[in-house]
């Protein structure tokens, strides 16, 4: 089988559209997971077990079940409950929710890393709980966990192809369509595979750099 560069050229316009959709999913999914993950992490430090236990259970459940099934769940079940979203929205919500359970762990580690004396100092100064979180604990915790959060953005990038199964037109889905139209599967799928390495490797190098800069001070 010969490698056909003209097939690569034909795929390029589709490919760039796919890259755009992938990055869009990644950006929105990251925002959801960063926000929701923080909510989970703070709920896990709540004072009553009526909050911590259900939140811990939900987190474990979402984290230990496949994103693919969750995508199908959102895609097929939500319309049955008369909730209609576009495929892109469904995909972004599912991937954001899935990764929020990972970021929750990251935040939790960051919050646990803040010395206990900081909590006590806040109590001694009679700071209200909200001020304690947002002015004392989180600024110290989040700085340390930025590289770890970045690593989850990279793994989220590598999970975006799953959105192809519900028909989101990201890179892999564009390659599948191109292959179905032209019967040339080799070039589009290889291009997409190489593109993932070209995006993910520099990003992971950047995260290692950030880790050295932000964490070890």
């Amino acid at each position: 089988m010969e490698w056909d560069w003209s097939a690569v050229d034909d795929f390029m316009p589709e490919f760039w559209d796919g890259v755009l959709t992938t990055l869009q999913v990644l950006a929105l999914g990251s925002l959801i997971s960063f926000g929701l993950g923080l909510v989970w992490a703070m709920a896990l430090r709540a004072r009553t077990r009526f909050i911590t236990w259900p939140v811990a259970l939900i987190n474990e459940f979402i984290r230990n079940t496949p994103l693919l099934i969750q995508l199908f769940f959102f895609f097929f079940v939500l319309p049955e409950w008369d909730v209609q979203f576009s495929t892109l929205t469904t995909g972004v919500l599912a991937i954001g929710l899935h990764y929020s359970t990972y970021t929750a762990q990251v935040y939790r580690a960051g919050i646990d890393g803040v010395p206990v004396g900081q909590w006590e100092a806040a109590t001694a100064l009679n700071l209200p709980r909200g001020r304690t979180w947002f002015a004392v604990i989180l600024p110290q915790a989040i700085r340390r966990v930025i590289p770890a959060l970045g690593n989850y953005v990279i793994s989220m990038l590598k999970d975006t192809p799953m959105l192809a199964v519900i028909g989101v037109l990201e890179m892999l889905q564009r390659a599948r369509q191109q292959g179905a139209e032209t019967f040339q599967f080799v070039e589009p799928i290889t291009v997409v595979g190489v593109a993932f390495i070209l995006i993910a490797y520099p990003a992971s190098v950047l995260m290692r750099f950030l880790e050295r800069r932000l964490v070890q001070q």
């Binding site: 089988m1 590598k158 999970d159 192809p161 892999l172 599967f185 080799v186 799928i189 595979g193 993932f196």
Partner: peptide
């Protein structure tokens, strides 16, 4: 390690299922 950690598992699976048979019959 970097190649396999860098690419998406699903894309690699597609590659094995659809590209490998075509390229190497």
């Amino acid at each position: 390690i970097e190649v396999f950690r860098g690419t998406s598992a699903l894309v690699f699976m597609f590659w094995i299922f659809f590209v490998l048979p075509l390229m190497f019959s």
